[in-house]
Design a protein around this nucleic acid. Structure first.
Lengths: 250, 250
DNA sequence: CGCTGCTTTGAACAACTTCAACTTCTGTGG
DNA sequence: CCACAGAAGTTGAAGTTGTTCAAAGCAGCG
């Protein structure tokens, strides 16, 4: 019996990818998908800490996350890192280079992850072949901007408690969209990353987790989260305008 | 002598517009510009308080600002308004509808303003005629996202003082790009708008203006700003990673 | 002139940070 | 397999920054 795995079977295929509805292919025609498939490359798996791209480096591609989780961040002039976003499977990362061909942030794997590379270097040529591609890209970027706006709102006006609740609900809904449990999940990022993203300190984040647990809203054990009282959690962010289920986040 | 003004002379023309370098036409070929001209409509002037579009309404176009100033904002569930951005001549507003055809924020004139309407409803058709248009739109949106990131950083990590300094420097550099003075200008927005945008209270903003004036950094008289010590002002935001001259802001 | 709305200023208060100590986890080498 | 070192997370107490509440000043406009 031949147990050798046929490499060609493993080749990336947007057509067969379970994430295609969340990803760039969404809305493309079958024919276009095949053309897209021909340019999409699956990168070798990334270990936690590996970089997908770095700030100020020339950008070559947008990346679609297949598995794992990444964060994107910038380094401030004083050397401190600030987390811009967390990225889960089905989401796209790296648009930021399209403005001037350079990345404005770095992206690194939080856990073992795999991504697909969508080389948009010569976007014009590619879009000649796939008319709907640019349109879809614009749609995704526009959605991303709206998500950023919600985050902006959060940082501008919301209390520490509301911020953490928003993040947890966002992660919950994003996991749910992938068909995973929205009530029990593992946080792929550290407390420090969460604090940086929410504009708080690790101490405050840690205290909030304890606080939520005391209130019976969550069960927290290191990185494991179990949402006990989703209604209560949602109630904490009720006063906010923006919806929190930003499926797409840079 | 015929003093009647020829209406056709007043018709919008991207070709002759002094702002074309800041606006969508930047980078387009002469032929493409003429096609763009044929679809661009100049709207009747807006009075302060007039709306360009409203949250949750169907979007029909992206708008380029010719003169005046606008703000975009969302209404939170608790009814409070939150300002998302200020928009000066040469900047584009309204991309946010491209995600799902609905606007996610409202835009209103802060002073008497005029705008050009770029109907991108059937973007696909239009981009068949102007191949570079979608590319340019993607570039602008990507730049906008990067600008939002900087703002995000500001709200997450910067002190009230740094926030106001950043805004003033941003306005200064944007006025300068239009060929106006970067050191003396009139704020088109109220203290309340500034506070909402920066995630502060009007009281804090007011105190900061007084504070800056006491330090000899600014001369402030109601809406007139005169930057006395640009170096000092810049020093206040030195520790930040993001650049503050976001020419493009949604 | 006297209203209304926007801005400024003051004093008390609350939220989050900072600093510091301690606990728990993780991985590495003996 | 255990011990140890370092990183990550938790908890407490003091300190700051910006908010809240309150009131007064000031321009615009009927």
């Amino acid at each position: 019996m031949n147990k050798v795995i046929d490499i060609s079977q493993l080749k990336t295929s947007c057509k067969n990818c379970s994430l295609s509805d969340l990803c760039l292919p969404h809305g493309l025609e079958q024919d276009d998908l095949e053309i897209l498939d021909s340019v999409v490359k699956q990168k070798t798996p990334m270990q936690a800490g590996d970089h997908l791209f770095r700030e100020d480096h020339r950008g070559k591609a947008v990346y679609a996350i297949r598995s794992g989780a990444l964060k994107s961040y910038q380094i401030a002039k004083d050397g401190t890192e600030r987390v811009i976003g967390f990225h889960l499977p089905g989401e796209l990362v790296g648009f930021d280079y399209l403005a001037d061909d350079n990345h404005h942030c770095s992206a690194t794997a939080l856990v073992t992850s795999s991504v697909c590379e969508l080389p948009l270097a010569n976007l014009d040529r590619l879009s000649g072949d796939i008319p709907g591609l640019q349109r879809q890209l614009i749609r995704i970027m526009s959605g991303e901007m709206n998500a950023d706006r919600d985050l902006l709102f959060m940082l501008a006006k919301k209390s520490a408690e509301e911020r953490l609740a928003s993040l947890l609900l966002s992660l919950s809904s994003r996991y749910q969209k992938r068909g995973l449990s929205g009530d029990e999940f593992i946080l792929p990022m550290s407390r420090t990353d969460i604090a940086s993203y929410l504009g708080l300190t690790t101490e405050t984040v840690s205290r909030l987790f304890s606080h939520f647990q005391d209130q019976g809203i969550l069960t927290v054990e290191r990185k494991s989260i179990s949402i006990q009282d989703g209604v209560g959690l949602r109630k904490l962010v009720t006063d906010c305008a923006g919806n929190t289920d930003n499926a797409i986040s840079m």
